[in-house]
Simulated scan of single mutants.
Amino acid sequence: MSEAKTALRDQLLTARNRRSLLEIGEAARAISGHLLAHGPVRRAATVAAYVSVGGEPGTGALLDGLRAAGKRVILPVLRPDHDLDWAVHDGDLRPAGRGLLEPAGPRLGVDAVAGADVVLVPGLAVAADGVRLGRGGGSYDRALARVPAGTPVLVLLYDDELLPGVPHEPHDLPVTAAVTPSAGLTPFAPSR
């Protein structure tokens, strides 16, 4: 991992840790509203999403809204090899390692993400070309490699996490858009 990536991750995580619960909650509501009104999400039968942790923009209201709209929501389950398995979110979440919450239902396999109509991913920042900076475990890069070209892949961020550029490596896969509280959807040139 490059020193530039490590330094930027540290800076972004420090900024997130300084956010108030009020700011995190307001961001979560705004992002949820943008996504639930977004055409591809409204038309989707299956949405691959995630359960936010720590200072990430909250996903609780979004997950509830997706389920209330009749969407099949699949959530990641971190495997011992750091790849992502998937399971349907039925409203029941259980504690998992690393402070994560995961669905309690049967596992669908690592390829289940390929069947999602929209994929929502966490990140720390995204560049103007759609390159996402994650936490560095590589789990989402592996999962995104299974997502068919043309599938919307959206990263949920705070407004100040849209950056002109981020350090990246060949295995870092771009997203198609970012969703932030104030700007809503920011699309990137298709490269998937």
Rank of each mutant, 00 (worst) to 15 (best):
A45F: 00
A44M: 07
P152I: 05
A4P: 01
P122M: 10
V119P: 12
V53S: 06
L185S: 02
P148Y: 07
A7Q: 15
S139G: 13
G136M: 09
T59H: 05
R16Y: 10
T151S: 03
A15R: 15
G137C: 05
D10I: 04
S182V: 11
G136L: 08
G60I: 00
A37R: 14
G136K: 06
D83A: 15
V147D: 08
R107Y: 04
G109Y: 12
W86F: 15
L163C: 07
E102R: 06
I31R: 08
D117R: 08
P76N: 10
V118Q: 04
V110R: 15
D160Q: 13
A61D: 14
R19K: 14
H38V: 00
G115Y: 01
W86D: 00
A183Y: 02
L173G: 02
S182Q: 14
D83Y: 03
G97I: 07
R42T: 12
G123T: 12
V113P: 06
P103D: 09
D81V: 04
G91H: 09
A37S: 14
S20P: 10
L154F: 07
A27I: 09
T176C: 07
R79Y: 03
P106E: 15
V41W: 08
V51Y: 03
L75F: 12
I74Q: 04
G97Y: 08
L156N: 00
H82G: 02
G60H: 14
V41P: 12
V155D: 00
R192Y: 09
A28W: 05
E102Q: 14
A15K: 15
L173E: 03
A125G: 06
L62G: 03
V166Q: 05
K5I: 13
A177E: 05
S191N: 08
V155G: 02
L66M: 01
N17T: 13
L173K: 11
V166D: 02
A112M: 01
D111V: 05
A15S: 14
D141P: 07
G65E: 01
G105W: 06
L173W: 02
A7G: 09
L108T: 09
E23L: 07
L12Y: 11
V131R: 14
G33I: 01
